[in-house]
Amino acid sequence: MFDTIRADLRHKKQWFLSEKSWFIRDVRIFLEPGTLAVIVYRFGRWVDRLRVPLLKQLLTALYLLAKAFVVMAFGIYIPVRADIGRGFTIHNFSSIFICDAQIGENLIVFQNVTIGYLRGQPQPPQLGNNVFLGAGAKVLGSVKIGDNVVVGPNSVVLSDVPPNCTVMGVPARIMARETDWMKDKREGRGKNY
């Protein structure tokens, strides 16, 4: 659990807070609603796999309380069934709803994002590694999104997206075939964001 949380925090710092002061990087990051939600989700995952009888029930109660707090106060809903890889980052809060999807590493989520089911499509979405969902993006139905994909703000993804693409619009269409800036940023070469 702590390993994964550390990886999540590292990714958040690297992506959003690389030029901020130490106070923001190491202290205020724990006050951010997105970070709290990620920590609660990781805790829930850990409790879910726990095999010690009494402790498990106690910690589950604690987790449910924490989850209720996160849902009520920040409007971020991530169930334990969601399988999200390391480096999961939530920037900002409110109206974030993620269903039990298969999601790779280094997912970045902004406010108002939904990853969910669509009527008549029983499978949840599958997301690859290094997916970036801009503010207000919706990924709905049994779609597959490849690695290194950027989904623009306010877009609605209803069909499969191949890897290394930027998609935008309602419904989302491919705008560009390369997302090298994400790799540059992750490796510290690009400073923009």
Binding site: S95, N112, A135, G136, P153, W181, N192, Y193
Partner: peptide
């Protein structure tokens, strides 16, 4: 509700 006015990558 649901309005974001803010930053974007590389905008400066």
């Amino acid at each position: 509700e649901g309005v974001t006015v803010g930053n974007i990558r590389g905008a400066g």
